[in-house]
Amino acid sequence: MSLNLAEELSSITTKATASDWREAIRLAGDGLVAGGVTTEAYTEEMITAVEEHGPYIVIAPGIALAHARPAESVLKGGLSWVSLETPVEFGHASNDPVTLVIGLAALDHTAHIEVLKAVAGVLSNKEVRARLEAAETPDQVRDLLSSLATK
């Protein structure tokens, strides 16, 4: 894997607490805002997307890819990472409950594809994913992602 996800993540939050899916998405949105990726409006747009289209953003067991359309609220492309202390129900038929929320913001429909490939590469490996979710601190997540990128 050539792309180092540790450098692509604008913000990492580990062992966060969210009482419901809206709060879980807000944490991912806060991470994007803190990283200078989006304005707060984008966080609400990510929540609205789920209200309109359902919890389809839960793309795999335990993983939500929170995102909305490229819009004025997106300042640059970026990703945030939130691992949850307690799993949260999104209402998905087969992939609930969620333990990891990735916030994604993109300026267009193609620029972030390499980053998404790296995310898919990392998270489709069950053993790697378990280690990432067990990480207690953002530094542990970064170190692990960096070690994967140099392999």
Binding site: A49, E52, H53, Y56, I57, I59, L65, H67, A68, R69, P70, L104, A106, H109, H112, I113, L116, K117, V119, A120
Partner: peptide, 15 residues
Amino acid sequence: VCGMGIGTSVLLKMN
């Protein structure tokens, strides 16, 4: 197909 055309559908296309 996904809701926004930037996230899930791109992953689905790749796989």
